[in-house]
């Protein structure tokens, strides 16, 4: 899981044998040989090492090739054949991911399959695939809730499907954060869906940001050394901006920011050496234009965290220039 190498177990075959297998498989790729014999060889290599992207590309060609072949069938038999094809492809990636949950190419292949399915198959079937995909993501996140592939995949699946994130998605993230709040991916996911969810409802967005400030407060008080909540906190203090809109929700409202500064002060009386609290305090003081105090905070940080001395010097310099 976290802090553990993604490739825990070595391939079953010894490496020399594996290399010869991989070479053989790559050779078949070049020749565009889609016979079942060639396919099983490629699958075998992929299961051992799902990072071989050329082999996944071979699979993509194979899928497109197959679809072209069955295009002219009767609708009923086309559906059956296509379903069989996609099921076996999904299963292959699942096996590969089971072995190496952090293989980029395998995740990409699933995205390709979903896109292709959406393009070629009737909606009834591809909706089923999407639904199943979200279920698998949830299950994967149960096993390792910090696997960012799972989170990113969830987002992408939604994008391909053409759906906006829903309240349920927000609820899903909330549950994950309740399960473990030291989860950068979950906080990040939250920061991506919130602006989209409340795109045209500024008032509601304002309320949601306030609620989240409360939530993040619980996290930073429980564990002030944990970075992930502080990053989300900073995002909220910046006014929860999104990629699409540069307008932030808190830009004119300094009342909330002042309240948050008081809360930070409260935490700093308990934990005077908390680096993240000091850094956030610096950020707020800078917004308020209180440059003298902001500089004092930076000096404290330089003493507390000598490894990042240069960074704090840079911040000081930057502040002086702007003021």
């Amino acid at each position: 899981m976290h802090g553990v190498r993604s490739y825990a177990e070595p391939p079953e075959e010894d490496s020399a044998r594996f290399i010869s297998l991989a070479k053989e498989a790559l050779e078949t790729c070049k020749q565009r040989d889609f016979s079942s014999q060639a396919l099983s060889l490629v699958n075998r290599v992929l299961e051992l090492n799902p990072d071989e992207y050329s082999l996944w590309n071979y699979h993509k060609r194979f899928v497109l090739n197959e679809i072209e072949k069955i295009m002219n069938y009767e609708p009923a038999s086309f559906q059956e054949a296509a379903e069989q094809l996609f099921d076996s492809e999904f299963e292959l990636t699942q096996r590969a991911l089971y072995r190496h949950p952090k293989a980029y190419s395998a995740w990409q292949h699933r995205i390709f399959l979903l896109k292709t399915a959406k393009y070629h198959l009737p909606s009834k079937i591809y909706e089923g695939y999407f639904k199943k995909e979200l279920e698998i993501c949830a299950k994967l996140l149960d096993l390792d809730d910090r696997n960012f592939h799972g989170w990113a995949h969830r987002m992408r699946v939604g994008d391909i499907r053409g759906l906006q994130p829903s309240r349920e998605e927000l609820q899903f993230v909330t549950e994950r954060i309740y399960g473990n709040f030291s989860n950068y991916s979950a906080w990040h996911h939250r920061s991506r869906i919130l602006p989209i969810l409340f795109k045209d409802q500024r008032d509601q967005y304002y309320l949601a940001v306030q609620e989240d400030l409360e939530l993040v407060k619980q996290a930073i008080f429980t564990e002030p050394e944990d970075q992930s909540a502080w990053f989300y906190f900073r995002w909220l203090l910046r006014g929860a901006p999104s990629y699409q809109t540069t307008v932030s929700v808190l830009d004119i409202d300094n009342e909330i920011l002042k309240k948050e500064l008081c809360i930070l002060e409260e935490l700093l009386t308990l934990e005077p050496k908390c680096k993240w609290a000091l850094l956030t305090k610096f950020y707020l003081l800078q917004i308020f234009g209180d440059f003298d105090n902001a500089e004092t905070v930076l000096t404290t940080l330089q003493k507390l965290d000598p490894l990042r001395n240069g960074y704090y010097m840079y911040l000081k310099e930057k502040m002086r220039r702007s003021s």
């Binding site: 309740y178 709040f181 407060k217 008080f221 429980t222 564990e223 002030p224 809360i263 935490l267 308990l270």
Partner: peptide, 21 residues
Amino acid sequence: SRNDIFRSMLLTPVEKRIFMK
């Protein structure tokens, strides 16, 4: 556990910090 403390509706943030520490 730390998550229980985080989730607790009854504890104030300051109490959470004191207990965790």
